[in-house]
């Protein structure tokens, strides 16, 4: 992890605070999430307090602070999906997995991410799990969808 971070910092050798977001994005691309260690070292590199970086990072939905699960559930919360009930779908998934958006289940099998629009409005409300689209999802279908991924693991 240390070497990966150092590589990123090398690319941003004389960076100032305006490079914060690109650096965080690169870290997340590389490691899948922003660990505490990563945030602290970004702070040392850019001379910004950790609390400030955490403040900036939590402002954006794109950053996560836990590693992704084996099955990464992206819930579309774009306008079309919203109109067709994606909020209740999201709540059903959160209840099913007993985690909130942005979190990863304790067994590491599932994580949830809320995204603004996947660009598949015709399929609304839509989920994307590990790259697979699930169209016209309803609360009733959630159990079946999630279990199908869980069963794949076994």
């Amino acid at each position: 992890m240390r070497t990966e971070l150092e590589e990123i910092f090398k690319r941003h050798a004389h960076a100032k605070r305006d490079s914060l977001i690109p650096i965080l994005q690169e870290i997340q691309d590389k490691m899948g999430y922003l660990s505490e260690e990563a945030v602290v070292s970004v702070g040392q590199h850019l001379n910004i307090a950790t609390s400030k970086i955490y403040g900036v990072a939590t402002f954006y939905n794109q950053f996560r602070f836990e590693p992704k699960g084996k099955n990464h559930v992206m819930v579309c919360r774009g306008t079309a999906c919203h109109v067709l009930g994606s909020q209740t779908v999201l709540e059903a998934i959160e209840n099913k997995l007993k985690i909130k958006a942005g979190q990863t289940s304790r067994d590491g099998l599932f994580s949830i991410e809320v995204v603004a629009c996947i660009g598949a409005c015709g399929l609304a409300p839509v989920l994307n799990i590990n790259g697979n689209f699930h169209a016209k999802v309803t609360v009733e279908k959630i159990d079946e969808i999630i279990e199908s991924y869980r069963n794949k693991e076994e």
């Binding site: 950790t50 609390s51 400030k52 403040g55 939590t58 402002f59 954006y60 602070f65």
Partner: peptide, 19 residues
């Protein structure tokens, strides 16, 4: 010292320490 900052966004914003 900068021990605290705004965390989160919109109606979910709170003031908190890092992580």
């Amino acid at each position: 010292v900068t021990a605290i900052d705004f965390v989160g966004r919109g109606s979910k914003t709170i003031i908190n320490s890092a992580f």
